[in-house]
């Protein structure tokens, strides 16, 4: 970054917030395994979740306090989602869905803090989740139903002459799942954060322009406030959608319907 001239145009680069910077370089066997800002934020998120759960459940009371109700409410919400989408067989997967939901939720929310790094704005993170869920769905399907699980690719009532067409289509639509799951979260977080940064950049450059322009700078500032509200909703909705679709996909593996 050159700061010799008084030029602030590169201070608020909208993509700078996504840079991964190694904080503690580690290299094992030629692979770069550095402890980065992304790792630091993920650990911070885990600590925050742990604290939330620990203090919420520390003294479990029959009449829950505020903190305990927050933890219980979140848990009930996930249990309700699993019950609704998977049914009684899904109870075993509640801890997994709950961990997934709360991690993505807290990661999305933490990303909205000033100077924050949003771990879910990286496709590497979201695709790792999605790929894991994808493999998990296949393995659970095979474990529960054996080879009958492959009947999933043959919708019931398909005429035999359409089979060569329907099976590849079903396989493609199954393979598209991890892509939609990961890209949706990543794209939403990235797009929102770029928008926030761009409008914040307008505020700064208009403010520096001085005079009448500084007054005009109120407009992008107001826009940023509105966008922040929208981003809060997006952060929650995307965490919810990710967890919801995971339950929907797990349901296909657990309760083989066709």
């Amino acid at each position: 970054m050159t700061t010799t001239k008084k030029d602030y145009s590169d201070v608020a680069g909208p993509l700078e917030q996504f840079e991964i910077k190694p904080l503690y370089p580690i290299e094992i066997g030629g692979y770069d395994l550095s402890f980065t800002n992304a790792s630091a934020w993920m650990i911070g998120i885990l600590v925050a979740i742990w604290a939330f759960m620990f203090f919420g459940m520390r003294k479990a009371e029959l009449v829950p306090g505020r903190w305990q109700s927050a933890v219980e409410g979140l848990h009930e919400f996930v249990v309700g989602m699993v019950d609704e989408n998977i049914g009684p067989n899904g109870r075993a997967y509640v801890p997994f869905i709950f961990s997934l939901f709360i991690f993505i939720l807290v990661a999305n929310m933490a990303g909205l803090l000033p100077y924050a790094f949003t771990v879910t704005s990286h496709i590497a993170v979201t695709f790792a989740f999605a790929a894991f869920i994808f493999l998990m769905c296949i393995l659970i399907g095979l474990a529960r139903h054996g080879l009958a699980w492959f009947g999933f690719f043959m919708p019931p009532g398909t005429p035999w002459y359409l089979m060569p067409l329907i099976i590849p289509i079903e396989i493609i639509s199954f393979l598209a799942r991890p892509i939609t799951l990961s890209v949706r979260l990543f794209a939403n977080m990235t797009a929102g954060h770029i928008l926030l940064k761009i409008f914040a950049g307008f505020v700064i450059s208009l403010g520096l322009a001085g005079g009448i322009w500084a007054a005009v700078g109120i407009l992008p500032f107001a826009m940023n406030v509105a966008l922040y509200a929208l981003e809060l909703i997006v952060a929650v909705v995307q965490a919810y959608v990710f967890a919801l679709l995971t339950t929907v996909y797990l349901n296909d593996s657990i309760n083989l319907e066709h």
């Binding site: 939609t180 949706r184 794209a187 939403n188 929208l230 909703i233 997006v234 909705v237 995307q238 959608v241």
Partner: peptide, 10 residues
């Protein structure tokens, strides 16, 4: 608006 946006991109 947030929900509609999420659904649309989805």
């Amino acid at each position: 608006a947030g929900n509609a946006f999420a659904q649309g991109t989805r």
